[in-house]
Amino acid sequence: MSSSASPPSSISSHSSDVENEAASVFNLRRLLKETLRVFVSDGRIFLGTFMGTDQLLNILLVNTEEYRLASDTESEPSGRFVGQVMIPWRLVTQVEAPGAKLRELGNGGTTSENRRTLYI
């Protein structure tokens, strides 16, 4: 974790809790209010603002758009606004965050360039 990185003001800051929590949880906390791209097992992709999760990793997103990969005959992108959703972890196949945030976390990862090949 970068030493220059401090918790964003938007994040819930019960200071004593935050100080005592594990680095992994702190890393996750820093993703709050970031745009996440969540892939689920039935082929849909959810793009929304991450607002919270629990120990079971039910992911809460707001202002979410739902996408499904377009069929051969569809020329329009098949996205729709679904608002506030909760995605259970059992359905999640992958979670992605914007690159800038990931670099702050100091965590390498698979870029979507690699994953994209799955859909070509």
Partner: peptide
């Protein structure tokens, strides 16, 4: 993909945090 190419896999970040969170813990 929707959202563009500048996205990176953070699945591991979630999995690690889940291991370290208290049962019933919540992050909002």
């Amino acid at each position: 993909l929707p959202g563009g190419d500048n996205f990176y896999d953070v699945t591991a970040v979630f999995e690690e945090a889940a291991r370290d969170m208290q049962p019933g813990g919540i992050l909002l």
